[in-house]
């Protein structure tokens, strides 16, 4: 049990998927202008990341390793993730139209979100068990949402700040992300 807690805290704070691993930067800068869209994107990522971890782990362990074709993992993972996202989109659209309205526009974006693929690969590299991978996927999603929410809060305030003209929009967002990452580095002092 304690191991799972270490994995969760590690993925949310210490090795935050955005601010430590630099994964999922496109949505991090793309949809962090408003808190409401940030929340929608975040929940879509949490959902897909948890499921993707739960799917890719058995495929790697029970399909690729027994046949000695580990080198196929890049091709397999991306195809599985892309198919899965498409499938979810269709299911949600059919059965939960309200949820589709909230998450729908973000789902196609997620296929090329490197954070999903990155977490699937990291689970394999770190040698987690099945439960560990699912917990890691879920917590990495939470970490992503946390970073995205903090960033959107900062950017909403920045709208009213007097930013020099050459720093407007993206450059100042990068500088804010740097300060955010600096703050998150304090977590690496935690002994887990």
């Amino acid at each position: 049990m304690e191991d799972l807690l270490v994995i969760a805290v590690g993925a949310i704070f210490v090795n935050n998927i955005v601010l430590y691993w630099f994964l999922g930067l496109c949505p991090f800068f793309g949809v962090s202008k408003k808190t409401s869209t940030a929340l929608g994107m975040g929940s879509a990522v949490i959902f897909v990341m948890t499921c993707a971890s739960a799917i890719t782990w058995p495929i790697y362990t029970y399909l690729l390793i027994p046949f000695n074709i580990e080198f196929m993992r890049t091709v397999t993972f991306i195809l599985v993730i892309a198919t899965f996202v498409q499938l979810i989109e269709m299911v949600i659209r059919k059965y939960k139209p309200s949820l589709y309205k909230a998450l729908g526009i973000f789902l196609p974006l997620i296929t090329t979100n490197c954070a999903i693929m990155g977490v699937a690969l990291l689970n394999i590299e770190k040698g987690y068990s099945f439960i560990g991978s699912v917990v890691d996927g879920f917590s990495a999603g939470i970490g992503f949402t946390l970073a995205l929410l903090l960033m959107s809060g900062i950017r909403e305030r920045l709208e009213f700040a007097n930013v020099p003209r050459s720093f407007q929009d993206l450059p100042i967002a990068f500088i804010s992300a740097a300060l955010l990452a600096l703050a998150f580095m304090a977590f690496s002092g935690m002994r887990l």
């Binding site: 601010l19 430590y20 630099f22 020099p164 003209r165 050459s166 720093f167 407007q168 993206l170 450059p171 100042i172 967002a173 990068f174 500088i175 992300a177 740097a178 300060l179 990452a181 600096l182 580095m185």
Partner: peptide, 22 residues
């Protein structure tokens, strides 16, 4: 060399490019 440095570098470089085009 740590993550904050990466964000800082690209932010400053982009601002310099903007400054030039302005």
């Amino acid at each position: 060399i740590l993550p904050p440095g990466a964000f800082l570098t690209i932010g400053v470089i982009m601002a310099l490019i903007n400054y030039r085009s302005i």
